[in-house]
Structure formats: C-alpha cells, structure tokens
C-alpha cells in the first residue's frame, strides 16, 4: 500500500517537473527567441486571355469558290476572359495560296458600318495590323463580321488560285500600357 502510494507520488512529482520545465521553456522562448513578423504577404498576377470564336473556323466550308464580284460574309466573336480590360487586334496568319493577293478582307463590328480592318488578305498580318480603337471590358463578348470579297477587276489571273489561312487575335492589358504595346 505504502509502496504504491510512493510510486504514485513519484509519478505525480515527475509529471509536475516535466510540465514546469515545459512552461519555463515556453516563457523563455517567448522572451528570447521571438521575432517580429508580418506574415501572409500575398501577390498575385492577373491573366490576359481571349476566346476567339470558341476556336472554331470562321469559314466552315472546305472549299468556297470565288469568282470576280463575289463576297463571302461570316460572323465570329471575341470574348475577353482576362482579369483586366484589354486592347485587341485581329489578323490573318499561315496564309497559303496566291489568292491572298486578290481577296479583300473587311472586318467590321457585327451590324455596323464601322470598318475595323480592311485590305488584301496578305496585308492583314500580325505585324501589320494595329490594335483596335475599342477595348474589351472584362468578360465582354463582341461579335464581328468578316467580308471576303473578290473585286470584279480580277480577271483570268485569279482562276485556279487558292487561299488558306488561320484567323488570329491578340490581346494585351490596358493597365500600364498607354502605347498599346503587344510585346
């Protein structure tokens, strides 16, 4: 009985000792070792991303036969998926075929007579087109109409020629970019 009591007292004593040591360590640490900190400083960059016609081709026909005076009209859209307002430009790339020098392309906002871009297909390249005057707000979706026209002045030299291309669009944030620089 006495032995078990002594054991219990010893256990309690040791536990007390350990707890006291822990407390002392904690207070000493608080006094000596701490530093001043401001934590969780967060920086996050934004995104510039646009959706051009959901990735679908503007001209779905595998082959469209042009003849002098013919005009092909197709609608497409651009949607701003960025986290900021953006400048944008639309251009043609991967041009193939000599018809690029015969076909005139005009791009206007849908149901508008304002001309955004106009010229021979071969001229509307990424390097040569400029940013549109308008900007796209966050989440804004704008529809455009592209007109592909073969002038009546094109004679027999336009026969048998082809045109293949990809439509491209670039966007860049308006923030800190007054000169509308894309690169």
């Amino acid at each position: 009985m006495s032995s078990s009591k002594t054991k219990r007292r010893l256990t309690v004593g040791i536990i007390t000792l350990i707890l006291l040591s822990l407390c002392l360590t904690a207070t000493t640490f608080a006094l000596v070792w701490a530093t001043v900190s401001v934590e969780n400083n967060l920086f996050q960059t934004g995104i510039v991303k646009i959706n051009l016609n959901d990735g679908n081709p503007i001209i779905n026909e595998e082959k469209f036969l042009f003849e002098p005076g013919a005009t092909l009209k197709r609608d497409f859209f651009i949607e701003n998926l960025s986290t900021w307002e953006v400048y944008y430009k639309i251009y043609m790339l991967n041009l193939e075929g000599d018809l690029a020098d015969k076909i005139y392309v005009t791009i206007t906002p849908k149901d508008s007579d304002d001309i955004l871009y106009e010229g021979l297909a071969s001229e509307l390249t990424r390097a040569r087109v400029h940013a549109a005057d308008d900007t796209l707000e966050i989440g804004e979706k704008v529809y455009f109409t592209a007109y592909f026209h073969m002038p009546t002045t094109v004679g027999n030299e336009g026969q048998g020629l082809e045109l293949g291309f990809d439509m491209g669009a670039d966007a860049v944030q308006t923030k800190n970019n007054p000169n509308r620089l894309f690169d």
């Binding site: 967060l42 920086f43 996050q44 960059t45 934004g46 900021w84 923030k175 800190n176």
Partner: peptide, 8 residues
C-alpha cells in the same frame, strides 16, 4: 500585409 491581386 500586402494583399495585391491582379497584378500586371
């Protein structure tokens, strides 16, 4: 603390 979102 800084909390800078949407940095460009």
């Amino acid at each position: 603390p800084f909390e800078v979102m949407n940095m460009f």
